[in-house]
């Protein structure tokens, strides 16, 4: 399923690149974005077609995870190349902040830890 999808994306981009050679180097004809010159770019090896593929891949994964199709372009456009690389590697296991944990929950967890470590024993039955 995923590989068919990837292949169709690849074919699409390849077709676009062949029909329109300008597609690969979209940003500013010839001028290099400052991003290619910052410290992290030194060991980042995504550019041109490969970068486009990675963007297309992350885009379809975000859509699969329920992102509104109308917002996909903006979300992808906001990402720097290094952020894109991070996201494509860790989309499914990076921390996703979302929960509200009531303070009572925190206290409970702390008590469990203290219990397990052996500092307190409030959860044990008294002899």
């Amino acid at each position: 399923m995923k590989s068919t999808h990837l292949r169709s994306t690849f074919v699409g981009i390849l077709a676009l690149a062949i029909v329109n050679p300008g597609f690969v180097n979209t940003a500013q004809a010839g001028i290099a974005g400052t991003e290619a010159m910052v410290s992290t770019a030194r060991d980042l090896h995504i550019a041109g077609l490969q970068g486009q593929l990675e963007r297309a891949d992350v885009r379809s994964e975000l859509a699969r995870l329920g992102v509104d199709p109308a917002a996909l372009d903006a979300r992808i456009a906001n990402l720097s190349d290094s952020e894109l690389a991070t996201l494509s590697k860790r989309l499914h296991d990076a921390p996703a902040g979302g929960n509200v944990v009531a303070v009572i929950g925190v206290v409970f967890i702390v008590l469990i830890i203290l219990e397990v470590v052996g500092v307190i024993d409030i959860f044990k039955k008294n002899p």
Binding site: L62, L79, G98
Partner: peptide, 23 residues
Amino acid sequence: EPLVYLPGRKGSLQVEMQAAPRS
């Protein structure tokens, strides 16, 4: 929400939290 919330993960990722202010 459309820029940072990821329904499939029931939360928001750091990378996207960092990217969204640029919009």
